[in-house]
Design a protein around this nucleic acid. Structure first.
Lengths: 335, 335
DNA sequence: CTGAAAGCGCTTACAG
DNA sequence: CTGAAAGCGCTTACAG
């Protein structure tokens, strides 16, 4: 392992000069800097993050935390974030909270994370008050992608508007009996995504002179399986909507699957629209309200890097990324 | 930040004793160990990885490298690996090589990675001789998931057998005119996955008395788009196979999509089978040769942890994970 | 512009 | 079983 002393010896300068030259600090003559850089390159020298981190307290890594390890949404955010973070020389430390409570505690352990990462990127995670407090106690810059968390800068989409866009599309096609699949009855933390999307849905329906029918709302978490269950639940009720707005594309895929299993044609008998523009949605001809999730990851990472660089903790800001209706073949006028 | 001296002071022992007590080293009385553990817990003390890493040369992190950031396969391997790694207290450092050559060099930079991670998990990446050499020069345990790399332990599936299983299913259904979609004409590193699967395909066909027809093989990388292009290419040729074996489920999905666009029914006019059992495959009723990708990630991580713990570098071994045919509704006897 | 030296927070022989 | 001390490889005031 080549160390800083090897470079210094070879260049005939002190290790202090090597350190300064390589990190672009002022107070090094152009000639010396060039010499040191050349020798470092020749020797393939890279400073050890451990050693550099001890005196500075910086790790050179950013922790990216998601509720579960996989899922289209999380990997897309991660991809965008990783791209930016890598460009700026940060390592990406990956954590997920799927391993029950123990992992969750670990991630919100002030000391643990503080000693491992310079900053934190949290995806779409409902946080309780203790966890928010722990994050602040960390004294590290934190960014959230998804829900608004008090006191923490957020990159998000306007979920009420998402609900409006989806429902408006259906209403404009002529639908008046529109179901909504979304909302997690097990959520006790008040995760606002589904409720907000439903708010936009109800608002647009009322504008069209339709009072939302509670029997047309069925709960669904963000999975294909939940979409199937949601459709089954709906079919078991005494209602026959002509359209359905699903809280995510994966839910919409489940709904389409279950509907077709029962011989209900999409879009002839039932129009279906989702949210996200999941990688696979176009394959299903699924109409959707698209969000640019990679871009959300990128923006969050850029903001984080900015705060890491400047050392200034700006006011917690909320950046709203626009969403866009994409009409495909899963929606059509009612017959 | 609570440091080891704080714990030592509070416990009335030396930092050496704290260090030993907390890491479970021998030579500490039960009573002292208990006392130190209690105080550490009370203070929320965690050793700084940077500080611990300096004297030991260990980072406590494992780097997980994939060719691209996303994709069902890579995230599934990562999920399995991360589960095991987290259980054993290792941090996961995530690298991907999508950022062109510069990133690739970075990852194979002996010094850089060596100073950041204790071990390396490489996914499905064709490596050239220089890269393999760099990996060895790193003197860190390396595991590969996917292709066999000389001198490096591998977790893999038997791709020739995969080809056999898929083709045998089609042949047993009665198909004799079977197409193959797979193989990347741009690959100059001899990535063996597609060729091996095609080998199994050809073998089973010959056993059934059918000489593989070169016109029935169309190239396709591992994407849905490639599957669409592959079907288009096939349709443009003067052949009408009754079945198609796609090198992956995503390719198969593209083939099914393109076929249906042209009014070709699956499975009535064309049986389609893929490989992987992708999360979404059941939604398409896609028959497939399933591999347990999470398990591959888990096994690789377990082997890596084992080598990290023992410090013994065992002989490079090759572990083959079994694959299994899942027949769904995309395959049927020819009409 | 440059260097000598202290110090970051741990681990690990070495002594006792 | 326990502690004092050296040392890991850097960075950063402080001096010159």
């Amino acid at each position: 392992m080549t160390g800083i002393v090897d470079v210094a010896a070879r260049a005939g300068v002190s290790v202090a000069t090597v350190s300064r030259a390589l990190r672009g600090l002022p107070g090094v003559s152009a000639a010396t800097r060039q010499l040191v850089q050349d020798i470092a390159a020749e020797l393939g020298y890279v400073a050890s993050p451990s050693a550099a981190g001890l005196p500075t307290g910086r790790t050179g890594a950013v922790a990216v935390v998601s509720p579960i390890a996989r899922g289209w949404y999380f990997t897309a955010v991660l991809e965008g974030a990783q791209e930016v973070l890598a460009q700026h020389g940060y390592d990406v430390l990956r954590y997920d909270l799927s391993e029950v409570e123990t992992n969750r505690r670990k991630v919100f352990d002030t000391q643990l994370l503080r000693k491992r990462a310079d900053g934190l990127l949290i995806m779409s995670l409902p946080l309780d008050a203790d966890e928010v407090a722990a994050l602040h106690a960390m004294h590290r810059p934190v960014m959230v992608v998804g829900p608004i968390v008090p006191g923490i800068p957020t990159i998000r989409v306007d979920d009420v508007e998402v609900g409006r866009q989806a429902t408006r599309h259906l209403v404009e096609l002529g639908h008046r009996s529109v179901a909504f699949a979304g909302g997690d009855p097990d959520d006790h933390l008040g995760f606002p995504v589904s409720p907000d999307r439903r708010l936009g849905y109800a608002e647009v329906l009322r504008e069209a002179g339709v009072e939302p029918d509670p029997r047309l709302t069925v709960p669904a978490k963000f999975t294909v399986e939940a979409g199937i269950a949601a459709y089954e639940e709906l079919a078991s009720r005494d209602v026959r909507p002509t359209a359905l707005f699903a809280v995510s594309d994966e839910v919409a895929m489940g709904v389409m699957y279950a509907a077709r299993q029962r011989g209900v044609r999409v879009p002839e008998d039932l129009s279906v629209i989702g949210v996200d523009d999941h990688d696979m949605s176009w394959l299903f001809g699924l109409s959707t309200v698209a969000q640019d999730v990679r871009e959300e990851g990128r923006l969050a990472a850029m903001a984080l890097v900015e705060r890491l660089r400047s050392g200034i903790d700006t006011e917690p800001s909320i950046t709203t990324v626009p969403t866009e209706l994409i009409a495909r073949t899963s929606t059509a006028p009612p017959r």
